[in-house]
Design a protein around this nucleic acid. Structure first.
Lengths: 335, 335
DNA sequence: TTGTAGGCGTTATCAG
DNA sequence: CTGATAACGCCTACAA
C-alpha cells in the first residue's frame, strides 16, 4: 500500500541538500554541475524513486513529447486483416521510441471521434500529428498545418492542402504489374478498384487505366473497398459482365484473395484461365491458393518515414514536401 | 501564420467580463453558473478558439485522462497478421473513446523499451495501464499494482501477481475442439502448441493434453510460436515423428494455416486424411483451402472488457478479479 | 452565484 | 557553478 505521495523535485533537493534548480539540471543532463553534486543528486533520485512529472514539465516547456497518430477510418475497418494500419503503427512506434516520445493513437471514424481528434490536436496536446490514411477531403490536416502544428500525411491530401506527405509509388507499381500481364499475352485485363475517395484507391486505378489504355486494351472495372467481401462481389460482377476476362489486377491483396476464390468457384483456373495480381504483399499472400503475385509496398517503412519527417518538422528542420517510397512486383504463381 | 499564443482561461475571462474561476466552471460543466453568463463565456470560448491546456489541468487534478496499452512483444511480432494485437487495440480504443480518454500505445519488446514503459507508467503519467499479453514472468504489472496504479492484464499474470485480468476461455474452447475430433473418430490427435511462456500457449496446450489423456489417447506434440513459419516446421516434425497422425490442433490460426499447406505438400488430404483445427478465427480462416475449422475468441471484446475493468478500478469501483470470455468452435471444412 | 487567491511540479532567468 | 524566484495554465477551497 505504498500510496506515498510520489516524490517531487523538492523532496529530492532536500535529501541531496541542494536546490530544486540543481536537481532539475542534473535530471535534464546539464553539464554545468559539479561531479560530486551530480552523484549526490542521482543517489537521492534513486533512493526516492523520483520520476519527473511530465505535466508540470510540459506546462513550462510547451512541449508534450508525444505525437498523435490519427486513423480516420471507421473503427471497424482500421484493423481488418490487411496489415496497413498495424504496419504504420509499428513503424511510427519504432521511430518514436528512438526519439523517446509517446504515441497517442486516435480513431476518427465517427463524426464525434473526428471532432474529438480536432479538439485534441488543435489544442496543442501533442507535438505533431500523423494522418494514417485520408478519406475524402478531410480539412483537418490543412487546418493543423495552418495553426503551425507539425503534420505529415500518408498520401497526398485530397483537399489540395499544402501539407507534407509520404506515400508509396502506387502508379509505378501498378504500371509494372499491368505491363507484366500484357507481356504474358493477357488482353482482357480487368481491375477491382479501391474506393475512389482515397488516394490509394485513385492512384492504383489511374495506373491501371493509363497502362491498359496506352496498350490499346479495354478498361474493365468493378469497384470494391479493399475488403474481401467487396472483392468477392466485384469479381462476380466482372465475371458476369466480361466472361472472357483473362487477367485481374485487384487494388488490395484482400480483394485479390477473394477474387482467387471466386474464380475457382466459377470454374476458372488461376493463372491458366485468369491471371491475378494483388497489391500490398500481406503475409497471407504467400499462402493463398495459388500463392499470390502482388505489388509489395513498404508499409512499416512508410510509418517510419512519416514519423521521421514529422520529427524533423517539429525540430524546425526543412523537409521534402513529398516523399515517395518505391514498390516492387513480387511474382509468385497467380500471374 | 496564426502563431498567436493560444488563448488561456484568463483571456476568455477578460473577453467575457468574468473571472477565471467562472470560465473554468463553465468549461467543466458546473451547473452553478447563471445561464446568461454561461452563454457569454461560451461565446468568448468560441470566438477565441479556446481549448483547455491539459498539462495545466492534470497538474492540479492529478489525472491525465490517458491510459497506456503495453504490448510486451517484440515490435516485429506485435503486428504479424494474426489479429490479436490489433483487435485488442481496437477494443481498447473504442471503450476509451467513449470515456473520453486517450490511448497511449507502448511497445515493450526490447529491454530498453521495457525500461521506458516502466519509467513512464510508474511515473504516473497515465491513469491506468493495460497489458496486452504477457511473456514470461514480467514483474511490472505486480509492481504497478502495488504502487496503487490501476492495472489490468489480458490473461493471468504468470508470476502469480495479484493483478486483475481478463481472458478468454482457452481450456474450454480447446476441450470442445478435441472432443469434437474424437467424436469424428480421430485417434492420433496431435497438437502444434504455442510458446510455453505465455498463458495462451500454456492453457491451450493444457486443454489439449488433458482431453486426449482423458480419452486414453496419446499426446503428440510439436512446439511453435504462433507464427506461420513455426507452424510449418512443427507440422513437418509431427509428420516425421508420427506419420499416422489423423488430426492436428494448432494453437493459432496462423500455424493451422501453415499446417494445411504443409499437409497438402506432403500429399495428405484435409480433412479426409488429417483433420485440422485452429485457434483465433482470424478473417483469413474462412478463406483457407479448405476453409479452417477453428476456435473463435472474442478478441475485440477482450480489449473492451479489459478497458472497462480498468476504468472501473480507476474510478474506485470494485471489480471481479478475473473475467472469462467464452470461446466457440466454428466448424468449417478442415475438420 | 461569483470572485479571490493559493498551489500543483517544473523549468528558466537572474543574481550571487 | 548554484540558488532564489517567477512564471506556465488551471482548479478549488474559501470568502463575499
Amino acid at each position: 500500500m505504498t500510496t506515498a505521495q510520489r516524490p517531487t523535485l523538492e523532496a529530492v533537493a532536500r535529501r541531496a541538500g541542494v536546490s530544486r534548480a540543481t536537481v532539475s539540471r542534473v535530471v535534464n543532463g546539464s553539464t554545468t554541475v559539479a561531479e560530486s553534486i551530480q552523484q549526490a543528486v542521482r543517489r537521492a533520485v534513486e533512493e526516492l524513486g523520483y520520476v519527473p512529472n511530465l505535466a508540470a514539465r510540459s506546462l513550462v516547456t510547451q512541449r508534450t513529447d508525444s505525437v498523435a497518430l490519427v486513423m480516420p477510418e471507421a473503427a471497424t475497418r482500421v484493423f481488418s486483416d490487411d496489415q496497413v494500419f498495424p504496419g504504420i503503427i509499428r513503424g511510427a512506434a519504432q521511430e518514436l521510441e528512438a526519439a523517446d516520445k509517446q504515441l497517442v493513437l486516435m480513431l476518427a471514424g465517427s463524426p464525434a471521434g473526428h471532432e474529438r481528434v480536432e479538439r485534441y490536436t488543435t489544442g496543442r496536446h501533442v507535438d505533431g500529428v500523423l494522418f494514417a490514411s485520408l478519406h475524402g477531403e478531410d480539412p483537418l490536416p490543412g487546418k493543423l498545418a495552418r495553426l503551425g502544428i507539425p503534420v505529415v500525411c500518408s498520401g497526398r491530401p485530397l483537399d489540395g492542402a499544402d501539407v507534407p506527405y509520404v506515400d508509396v509509388d502506387h502508379v509505378g507499381g501498378v504500371t509494372r504489374a499491368i505491363r507484366y500481364l500484357i507481356e504474358q499475352g493477357r488482353r482482357r485485363i480487368a481491375t477491382i478498384a479501391g474506393p475512389q475517395d482515397m488516394v490509394a484507391g485513385i492512384e492504383r486505378f489511374d495506373g491501371y487505366r493509363d497502362t491498359v489504355a496506352a496498350a490499346g486494351l479495354p478498361t474493365l472495372v468493378a469497384y470494391g473497398d479493399f475488403t474481401r467481401e467487396s472483392g468477392t462481389a466485384a469479381m462476380r460482377q466482372l465475371l458476369a459482365e466480361h466472361p472472357d476476362v483473362d487477367a485481374v489486377f485487384a487494388a488490395s491483396d484482400l480483394m485479390a484473395h477473394a477474387a482467387l476464390r471466386t474464380l475457382r468457384e466459377a470454374g476458372k483456373r488461376v493463372p491458366q484461365d485468369v491471371a491475378v495480381i494483388g497489391f500490398d504483399d500481406i503475409e497471407t499472400a504467400a499462402y493463398t491458393e495459388p500463392p499470390l503475385t502482388t505489388i509489395r509496398q513498404p508499409i512499416v517503412e512508410l510509418g517510419r518515414a512519416m514519423t521521421r519527417q514529422l520529427l524533423r518538422i517539429a525540430a524546425g528542420e526543412p523537409v521534402e514536401h513529398a516523399l515517395m517510397l518505391s514498390t516492387e512486383l513480387v511474382v509468385r504463381e497467380s500471374a
